[in-house]
């Protein structure tokens, strides 16, 4: 509860601070995207890392526990959400600053591939299965996808250096103005808190879903048994 309040308060503060940022010479109104876009991108990476880590913890026999599987699945869904938001806010920011919605930059391409990997993982998780089977299957899938991330990184970076230099450099060359830095930092905090809050509840819901499936199975077996009694009696 207190986590939720903290998340909402920081999110509101980010909005207020972001909207009251002064216009800049180069980007006019659009520089205000700095309040949310970097924070969202950071959270997408955090959420993906949590999924990878939780999957490894599940696979490791000594730390194997149902909660790691639920954590991995819940975090992956949020990673999908934040990666999609990152691409959307990035496009909205890119349109006025670069003149196009999308450039085939290494970082952008990697994010798009990341989203595809996450969507695949989420789809695999949604296939009905026993919790144990689902856990092994999705942990393996997470690890298989994790293996490809560094290879992807090199492939995409080299691919782009073939044609042109990096079209955007996200490390700021000029130091950011104080109010922009404050808005960005607050954005990081707000998005991380929102992620943590959503994660806690998504894990809780996942646990309830599993419990409901168990109950539904028991109820179905019960019903079959009751159907059988009159036949046996007759």
């Amino acid at each position: 509860m207190s986590l939720g309040i903290a998340a909402l308060v920081t999110l509101a503060a980010t909005c207020v601070l972001g909207l009251t940022l002064p216009k800049t010479v180069e980007q006019a109104e659009y520089s205000r995207m700095i309040a949310i876009h970097p924070g969202i991108a950071w959270t997408a990476y955090v959420a993906s890392s949590v999924t990878a880590l939780a999957s490894i913890l599940w696979l490791w026999p000594r730390t194997r526990h149902e909660r790691w599987d639920l954590l991995a699945g819940s975090s992956a869904e949020l990673a999908t959400l934040f990666t999609a938001l990152m691409l959307i806010t990035g496009s909205i920011w890119g349109r006025p600053t670069w003149g196009v919605w999308w450039v085939w930059d290494a970082r952008l391409t990697l994010s798009a591939l990341m989203l595809a990997l996450l969507l695949g993982y989420d789809a695999l998780r949604r296939v009905p299965a026993e919790p144990d089977v689902r856990a092994r299957r999705s942990a393996m899938a997470a690890l298989l996808a994790l293996v490809v991330v560094p290879v992807n990184h090199f492939a995409v970076t080299w691919w782009r250096t073939l044609h042109q230099g990096r079209s955007l450099d996200l490390t700021p060359k000029d130091s950011l103005d104080g109010s922009f830095l404050a808005a960005m930092t607050l954005g990081f905090l707000a998005m991380t808190l929102v992620y943590a809050w959503l994660l806690v509840h998504r894990v809780r819901v996942a646990r309830l879903e599993d419990a409901r499936d168990d109950l539904a199975l028991e109820a179905a077996i019960d019903e079959r048994r009751r159907e059988a009694i009159p036949v046996a009696g007759a």
Partner: peptide, 19 residues
């Protein structure tokens, strides 16, 4: 499901083999 899982993973193969 298989294309959705496999294609993003083999993307680097496509890039590297093409180059």
């Amino acid at each position: 499901l298989l294309p959705l899982l496999l294609l993003p993973v083999v993307a680097p193969v496509l890039i590297a083999a093409t180059r």
